[in-house]
């Protein structure tokens, strides 16, 4: 059998089809993960890399680390607290009524997600400029609040900026997820509930929410993931150098140690810590929601 015809058999062909993934997996995932683990035990200096055991791990806990962890945690909690319930309500509202109006609204909410984070950052800097005339401070002035220095004013202002930006960019995307989740709920359930005399609020809490659970789990999982792995939203505001670390995230810390300070060993250790945090939280959250229970 020639090489060519052997490649054509049904037994061999699937391996040819999946080969690109295998190559990519080994080169761009397995090898980098292994290198990260290795570098976390090393002091990486060009030309004289040395094995230093657990020293990097001993040095993990410092003020930068706590700052990054705090920013990541608060950011993740706040984005989940906003970007799960609000899109659910909007999705319910947009799932009935005029089809055409709903499509228009859906598109309006979705549009910001098309804009790159750099473009969004540029506009937000101008809207949140520290003068009392700029849009946001102008609104505050009307209700009698003094102008705020959003970019450099402190931790709360910085967090507000980042969460606001995330809400603007991601609400429309989550809205699509929830609308598609709602459309999978059989109409008959609502009809039956209506016959039984359930009011709209009861129908929402007894039918919509429980049946939307898979989507809620999914959106929460990607939010945990995105929250702790956040980097760009902070980088475009402070270029990695925020006053008092108000915008420092775990990835920001990794970037700072690795690329701005050239300490690849320590940065790798932070990378692994981040991976462990994200994995643990995602799994804990999935377990909390009973995702591993066999329901069917």
């Amino acid at each position: 059998m020639s090489m060519k015809s052997r490649l054509n058999t049904m037994r061999v062909a699937p391996y040819v089809f999946v080969a690109p993934f295998l190559v990519a997996f080994v080169c761009f995932y397995l090898y980098p993960i292994a290198t990260t683990i290795l570098m976390s035990f090393q002091n990486v200096v060009p030309g004289q890399t040395s094995f230093i055991g657990l020293t990097n791990y001993g040095n993990i806990i410092n003020s930068d680390f706590w700052d990054a962890l705090r920013v990541g945690l608060i950011y993740t909690v706040l984005t989940i607290a906003i970007l799960v319930p609000v899109p659910i309500v909007f999705a319910v509202l947009l799932n009935s009524g005029s089809r055409r109006l709903n499509t228009v609204h859906r598109a309006m909410f979705f549009l910001p997600s098309l804009v790159s984070v750099v473009v969004a950052g540029t506009v937000f800097r101008l809207m949140f400029a520290s003068t009392d005339k700029a849009v946001v401070n102008g609104v505050l002035k009307m209700v009698g609040i003094n102008p705020v220095d959003w970019l450099l004013g402190g931790a709360a202002q910085a967090m507000f900026l980042m969460v606001f930006l995330a809400t603007w960019r991601w609400l429309g995307v989550n809205l699509i997820y929830f609308i598609s989740g709602l459309q999978a709920i059989p109409e008959e359930l609502y009809e039956a509930a209506e016959i039984d005399g359930a009011n709209p609020l009861q129908r929402f809490f007894r039918i919509t929410l429980p049946l939307l659970k898979p989507t809620i789990v999914f959106v929460t999982t990607i939010s945990i993931f995105g929250g702790f792995a956040m980097f760009e939203e902070s980088y475009i505001f402070w270029q990695g150098l925020s006053p008092n670390n108000v915008g420092l995230t775990m990835v920001g810390l990794l970037y700072k140690r690795g690329f701005q300070q050239g300490d690849l060993g320590m940065a790798s250790t932070y990378g692994l810590v981040l991976m462990i945090i994200v994995f643990t939280l995602s799994l804990a959250q999935l377990k909390l929601f009973g995702f591993f229970r066999k329901e069917d």
């Binding site: 980098p32 993960i33 990260t36 792995a229 990835v251 790798s268 981040l274 991976m275 995602s282």
Partner: peptide
């Protein structure tokens, strides 16, 4: 489930 962000250092090397 692996955040690409943590792989940028080895990929950079």
């Amino acid at each position: 489930l692996v955040p690409l962000q943590i792989l940028i250092l080895p990929l950079y090397s």
